[in-house]
Every structure is written in C-alpha cells, then in structure tokens.
C-alpha cells in the first residue's frame, strides 16, 4: 500500500516528498440502525451520550444499515446526520446498505464502507460483542463516580485493580490507574497512560495517532506497549528494564523504553 518516494532515486524532483501514502486501520463505533424513526433514535441515543460524553465527543461513527435492508422505507439521512452531529459525533460513512440507501448516503457525502459479502459481515458481527463488552466495561466504570472520575478533558482515573479481560479507554485524554493492571487487561488512551501498580497487561497510548503520547509506569511487566501504533511485545522488551520505573515514548518514529531514575 505504501508508496515510497525515496529521495535518492527521485533526484530530479527538487523538493523533498510532501506526503506519504499509507494504509491504516481504525476501530470506530458503529451505530446499527434498527428503526427508521429518527425521533426515536435521538430519544434513545441522547441519554447514552450523556452517560459518557467524553467517549462520543468528536468521535467518528459508522452507520450500519444491514438490519434495515428488508424494510421498504428510506433512511432520512439529512435528519440522521444532523442529530449525530448535534450529539457531538462525526458520521463518516455507512455500511451494509442497499443500492438506493447507498445512493442517498452518498448524497450526504457519507463514505460507503466495508464489503457486504457474507464472510465480511459475519466477521464484523462476531467482533461486535467483544468491543461492545469492552465499551460497557469502560462505560460502567465511568458511571461510578466513587472509583472513576471522567473529567471534562476525557481523561480517566481508575483507583482499583484492572483485571484480566477488562478494557479501559480514555477517549481524548489521559488514563491513570492507581493499582495493578493484570495480564490480559487492556488500557487505551488517546493521550498518555500512567500506571502506579505493577503493569502486566497491554497498554496502548496515543490510540488516535498522537506521536507525543507516552506511557509511564512504576513496575514494567507489560505484555505489550504501544505508542501511536508503534508497539513492542513483552518478548522484545529488554529484561533489564522489567520491573523498573520506565517511560515509553516515540523518538523519531522509534519506540524507546527508558528508565526513570
């Protein structure tokens, strides 16, 4: 996918390359439409957004039409796009629609995403419960003010252990865990991640590509560390850094793990 223009071979171009073309994949929330009544959609969606405003703010979303295809009615895209934008989301595309539905979506400048083949759809569907559960874990911990404080910036503070199988995501901010993170747990943040207990799980900072994000921890035993897509698994982390206080950051596209004195 990547088209690389090496400056050695392209000596006839005076300027250095202005861009690189790359492929990258993103995990986006999908809104699966089950009804055509946009007022009902708005009435049910608004309270959800209220529960986790940080999660939905400026979040690109995909509209899934697969469940509607048997119904004859048309989707009121202008109204739908309007209400999603009104709730702070950025609708970017549709998936699984019929030809006329796709046409209508295109008219609203929505991208037509994904393949509608059986396998593709089955795979997409199979992955849904997992992410949904993760979301709910994240959401449910965000709801309980006693343990977790969702701040205005989208940052998340957790002061109890993060267990195997739990996923936490601080959308648009930092994630701080005051407690252990078990092997099999997953921490994600658009910003930095701080862990004050032993870190044995997976940590992904700069989820949306922020190269300045860092991971800080006091006892590094992580299964995987990642900053803006550059990652290292446990096997590739030098043993002399394990169990120490470290920071993980990007230095000119190279992931570095350095002890903090």
């Amino acid at each position: 996918m990547a088209v690389q223009t090496s400056s050695d071979t392209a000596t006839h171009t005076s300027a250095s390359p202005a861009f690189e073309l790359k492929a990258s994949s993103f995990t986006l929330p999908v809104i699966r439409l089950l009804a055509l009544d946009m007022d009902a959609v708005e009435a049910q969606l608004a309270p959800k957004v209220e529960q986790a405003p940080g999660f939905f703010r400026n979040t690109p979303v995909v509209i899934e039409l697969g469940a509607l295809s048997q119904e004859a009615g048309t989707v009121a895209f202008p109204q739908l796009v309007g209400l999603l934008r009104g709730l702070g989301m950025i609708p970017v595309g549709v998936r699984g629609g019929s030809a006329p539905q796709n046409e209508a979506a295109r008219a609203m400048e929505l991208a037509i995403l994904g393949d509608s083949t059986r396998a593709g759809r089955a795979a997409a569907e199979a992955s849904v419960p997992d992410t949904r559960q993760g979301r709910r874990d994240a959401d449910s911990s965000a709801e309980h003010g006693t343990e977790t404080h969702a701040e205005l910036s989208g940052s998340l503070l957790v002061d109890r252990p993060v267990r195997s199988g739990q996923r936490l995501y601080a959308a648009g901010g930092d994630l701080t865990v005051v407690g252990p993170v078990s092997s099999g747990a997953e921490l994600m943040a658009d910003g930095n991640i701080h862990v004050y207990g032993p870190l044995r799980g997976r940590v992904i900072a700069g989820l949306q590509g922020d190269l300045r994000s860092r991971i800080f921890c006091r006892d590094l035993q992580a299964e995987l560390v990642s900053v803006a897509g550059h990652y290292r698994v446990s096997e590739n982390i030098p043993t002399d850094l394990k169990g120490r206080s470290v920071q993980v950051f990007l230095d000119h596209q190279v992931l570095r793990i350095e002890p903090i004195a």
Binding site: S141, P161, V162, R163, S164, G165, S182
Partner: peptide, 8 residues
C-alpha cells in the same frame, strides 16, 4: 483475575 473483573 478474569472473574474479579466480571464481578466488578
């Protein structure tokens, strides 16, 4: 550990 996560 997984069970504790579910309990929570």
């Amino acid at each position: 550990d997984r069970m504790l996560g579910i309990l929570a």
